[in-house]
Design a binder for these strands. Sequence first.
DNA 1: CCTCGGTAGTTGCACAGTCAACTACTAAAA
DNA 2: TTTTAGTAGTTGACTGTGCAACTACCGAGG
Lengths: 163, 163
Amino acid sequence: MNMTSDKTRLEAWALFLEAHARLVQTLEAELEAETGLPLTWYDVLAQLSAAPEGRLRMSDLYQSLLLSKSGLTRRIDRMVEVGLVERKGCPGDRRGVFAVLTPKGREILRAAAPLHCAGVERHFGEHIDETELATFRRVLTKIIADLGDGAERQCESALDEGA
Amino acid sequence: MNMTSDKTRLEAWALFLEAHARLVQTLEAELEAETGLPLTWYDVLAQLSAAPEGRLRMSDLYQSLLLSKSGLTRRIDRMVEVGLVERKGCPGDRRGVFAVLTPKGREILRAAAPLHCAGVERHFGEHIDETELATFRRVLTKIIADLGDGAERQCESALDEGA
DNA sequence: CCTCGGTAGTTGCACAGTCAACTACTAAAA
DNA sequence: TTTTAGTAGTTGACTGTGCAACTACCGAGG
């Protein structure tokens, strides 16, 4: 269609990747320095604390963290070792396991959350005004929705092939 | 300041992370399926082919890939093994090493590039119209510029501490 | 000339993640 | 009830990356 804007879109993709990499790197470094918490652990704590009773099934948790099953198993292993979370069996489904926030985990998150949020605001939010914010959210939401569709289509076609 | 928009900004950050993760995952899978090339290798090939004579110093390359020194050493090791790139000594600085695109590397990139770009267009570009594109680029550029400043400040303060 | 601070790249080690195979369990069908 | 397809989670083997230490080299000052 429009060569100029196609090229510009590709550049936007490059900017997107660079911004992501640098933001994550910076926020990770700051969080680690301020609280000793890796960003990946923070994400686990945040998810759990947002859930009722501070606990979540392993399978819900790894999906919302965009992590593999085994990746979560191992991350939780490490966090259990340090006492930030516990594993609890799931009454009613004996296959299931809950990852549960410990008091220590809750307290550490309470200390870390404002610092991390401030970091996000400083490095990310600060640069987006009200109007831009609406655009940003709309675009990202569309992108994510479209990828969801794609994944579903993959499943369908995988099923089709089986037929 | 404005609690509502602060919360919205935090949500935008979450969307940003999710969009990134899903996009990279999807594009990686598609590229691998279509060309057998991991996205990280594609990035190397693309950088090299954009550079004069299809070659770049290791140190320039790892910086533009946002990768660690050793990370690049190893990535190039693997790509050399498969014949996509070569290492050449740098005349005039015997410490230096060039990573150089081989004919095979060039050819594989030529086949892969349009496919990958189409993927980026399909999953990313499609969802951004002309106006949004300008906003997107402006915001991301500001974010990156600010992070750059931060890194420099860290260096300065590190130097200050030494004094 | 030599020395010495700094840079280029590689290597050993450790860590966090994935995939595939496995165990244990559930639920639905025979 | 027994079988069987499918789900939940863990484990083993492997991959890719980072950090810190190391070698080799550059270039400026004595």
